[in-house]
Design a binder for these strands. Sequence first.
DNA 1: TATTGGCACTCGACGCGTTCGAGTGCTAAT
DNA 2: ATTAGCACTCGAACGCGTCGAGTGCCAATA
Lengths: 393, 393
Amino acid sequence: MDERKKQILKAIVDDYVETAEPVGSKSLVDRHKLKYSSATIRHEMAELEEMGYLEKPHTSAGRMPSDRGYRAYVDNMLSLPEISPQEASGIRDFLLKNLDEARELIERAAEYLAGKTNYLSVALSPQYSDSSLEQIKIMMIEPGRAIVVLVLSAGVVHDRLIRIPAMIDEKQLDSIGRAVERCLAGKKLDDITLVTISSAAGETGLPEALVNQVLYEAYVAIKQTEKIEIFMDGRHHLLKQPEFRNVDRANRFYRAVHQEQMVAGYMMEMRQEQEERQAEGCDWNLDCLEAVESGEESALSVQRTKPSYMVRIGQEIALDGMEDMSFITTTYRIGRQISGQIGVIGPKRMQYGRIISQISFVNKALMEAAGEHYGHPDSNDGSSGQKEGKTEE
Amino acid sequence: MDERKKQILKAIVDDYVETAEPVGSKSLVDRHKLKYSSATIRHEMAELEEMGYLEKPHTSAGRMPSDRGYRAYVDNMLSLPEISPQEASGIRDFLLKNLDEARELIERAAEYLAGKTNYLSVALSPQYSDSSLEQIKIMMIEPGRAIVVLVLSAGVVHDRLIRIPAMIDEKQLDSIGRAVERCLAGKKLDDITLVTISSAAGETGLPEALVNQVLYEAYVAIKQTEKIEIFMDGRHHLLKQPEFRNVDRANRFYRAVHQEQMVAGYMMEMRQEQEERQAEGCDWNLDCLEAVESGEESALSVQRTKPSYMVRIGQEIALDGMEDMSFITTTYRIGRQISGQIGVIGPKRMQYGRIISQISFVNKALMEAAGEHYGHPDSNDGSSGQKEGKTEE
DNA sequence: TATTGGCACTCGACGCGTTCGAGTGCTAAT
DNA sequence: ATTAGCACTCGAACGCGTCGAGTGCCAATA
């Protein structure tokens, strides 16, 4: 594709994104002060259409980008605007003010993103499978009930109520707890199985029948920790989009979005793929992001992992009802072992540059905020930085 | 209003709810096999309109109910269908299967309700201000961090991470914890203030400066317990409603719904008003509900408080953007001191009878489920029944 | 050879008038 | 008090002509 075609395609995408109307050769020449006549442009547009980058809704209409057109735009002609100071200001406060738990931090990041982009934002709670278990305490609440408190490697705390045999007393419970801790401490959550944990039974000197129920409950508590939650915000923004003037479309889409587990699963797939792609090294994304990074010479230089993003356009999204949307995600990292996904769903006809900048920016702010609020200022590699938080289910 | 007018109004509401089209005299006579001619009906309709129960979109169109018409319908001519067994089946499983926390129980009840009604369901998490604090434990996680575990009267457990001065050791923390418990045990959450709690400081024999931070954090933890969460489900269903064929309306509405705190606040107001009305005894609702109750001779007879409901129609709803909707809520109770709200938002043109039945049914199932899963089978008054659960913020 | 002006053609949007039908209100007869 | 009958109203649906922004193609041009 020669330079002029690129220019034209970019112009068409930009116009179409703005107006939501098929763009014609004449108006294109006018608006962009192109130094060719509309006839030439028409010629080029016909070729671009033949190549699959453009589509016509009907014979005598202007052109609009196809999925492939958007893809080319995003891959090759994207410019990422910097976040203006007034846009950027306030996010720190927004994220950190009266903050209680890690969970809420993510929730707020999603909320902020939705507000700034006017699209639907989606975030996944952190994935802890790579974290290791540092402490586990089981404490009696009253006969028959206890609470399990888990401390993970980065200082994250989770807990969960469990039922235990009523005849177990505080001392016994304590010894079971210590046995479990000896047996599991330092292990990665992923590697903990029912088999691993039941090897603690022998150490207690208590009747197996008693111990086993507690062990099982403790096991469940540990596994609950790995459950991933999904947060969404800004669903209502999309109704303003002209593509949803057609209510049936909106309907289809919102039904799809309502399948939160599907969406979450898909985001994890995207992450997977992004990581694979990065591993292969063929990652043009990095270049783009470099630009953003250098825009603000930030305190985040400690973070080794570069933020990067992934874009899925239209049919590329393997979720029913999302054919007319685009889905942009990125991975946030808190310390070394904790990470999750955050992203935006909007119409295909999206301001890709602006949105990607926003996502990268929020992502960065999120990581900074996590470090700032929960971290130790003197330990910068992240893995020993503290991160407070709990979730439970 | 004479009997015939009532009959006609009811017929009009029923027809309009079904078809969403203004209903005319002729079709009304046909569909309901009325023994008067259309001219007579026309006469009556004109009068009903004059009385404010009906409206015409334009001169030569049929009539549709006004807010006042719906109100009369709901107040005087409502019939509450029984829940059919196949509709009812599965709710127990749905609510209880793999249930972890109280919070999730409410969430599921809302989900179920949304699914069955095809409208938007809303639920508030339980309000604990009336509960009293039974136990409070503060336990060290690591230097500088601890976890506060609160056990409320009905056996509900909440917890929260706090920061403490790093020099406090496990023993000291323990003694602070016990002092706080001595000082607060048995008090209603509502009655606990910073003043009450700081009276514990003297008992510990530790430097005030050290103790005070812990006390403050414990106080915050207690207050967090009273925060009310809101759950919604089924937003997407409403898009199917013909009233939302107009996207701008949908837009306005969804923006309103997005103000979750507003909605939650409004639900609490409604509850307030309902309680006042019940106290006055002038409660026609009870009669209606009696019918539903007797429909299923249920295990819930232990519950002394009768379920009842509250309906707000159109303009009656004091929330911007909800003028075309109706809002039905009811109060669920778990034991004596714990209660919250659950309800449905749908178009004014709503199957009131069916929806109210559904809400009452779900409410009952919710209370049963709470009793069954968390309660002691042998203590039925609820207040001593156990209720497991935690939330944290 | 790449570019351009010119021209015929296409098609949706818009405005306008007509028809159709389901509704109304009013009146006179039962 | 009820009803049949009649004139009237108004939105929905339809057909039709016009307008304009778009197209493709072709012959002329730099």
